[in-house]
Simulated assay, not measured.
Amino acid sequence: MGRRRKRSRPRLVPKRKLPTVFQCPACGATAVSVSVLKGKEKKVIVTCANCGLRGEYEYNQYLHPVDYFSRFLDDYEAGKLTVISKHEDENNAENEG
């Protein structure tokens, strides 16, 4: 004679999520965000909120924010990106208008 076995429930393992905020290659702050602008021209803008480093890319429905960040890193290492400070951006807006 033996006793009944207890049924064990399978453990739920949470799915891993892709990151949404990244580390800036220029200043090292965790302040890089990826935003998608859907208008006439679909663009993806990757910007650092700390130092102003910015990159613009064409929107592709098959790519995730991580993919755009990797393009951003590649462009930074190749020297294609420049740091735009807030003061320069304001001066450009005043000169144009």
Rank of each mutant, 00 (worst) to 15 (best):
Y62Q: 12
V13I: 15
R7P: 01
C27N: 07
G28I: 10
V21E: 13
Q23E: 15
G2D: 11
G52H: 05
T30N: 14
R16N: 06
V83G: 06
V44H: 09
E90P: 00
A31C: 10
V44F: 09
K43R: 15
I84K: 11
E77P: 01
G39W: 05
R7Y: 02
G97R: 13
V44T: 08
M1L: 03
K38Q: 13
R11H: 06
G52S: 05
Y57L: 08
K6Y: 07
R7N: 07
G2C: 00
K38F: 04
H87C: 00
R11M: 06
R7M: 01
H87F: 00
K17P: 01
V32M: 07
L18Y: 09
Y59A: 02
V36S: 11
E88W: 03
S70M: 11
L12I: 11
R54Q: 13
G28A: 08
N92G: 07
V44D: 08
Y62W: 06
C27K: 01
C48A: 08
N60P: 01
C27Y: 05
D74L: 09
E94K: 13
K17C: 06
L63W: 13
G55E: 02
E96C: 01
D75R: 12
Y57G: 03
E90F: 06
G55N: 07
V13K: 14
L81Q: 04
L12G: 02
E94G: 00
D67A: 10
E96R: 13
I45F: 02
E88P: 00
E90D: 12
R5Y: 00
L53C: 04
R71C: 02
K42C: 04
V21R: 15
P10V: 02
V66L: 14
R16D: 13
N91H: 06
V83I: 14
E96I: 13
L37H: 14
A78N: 09
N60S: 12
L63T: 02
K40I: 08
E90G: 00
I84E: 06
P25I: 03
G79K: 05
H87A: 12
L63S: 11
F69K: 09
C24Y: 03
E58H: 10
Q61K: 14
V32L: 07
N95L: 11
V83E: 04
Y57Q: 07
G97S: 10
T82F: 10
T47W: 03
P14Y: 04
C48Q: 07
R5I: 01
V36R: 14
K17F: 09
S35G: 05
N50R: 15
S85D: 13
Y59K: 01
L53G: 03
N60D: 15
L37F: 11
D89S: 12
L53D: 04
K6E: 09
P25Q: 05
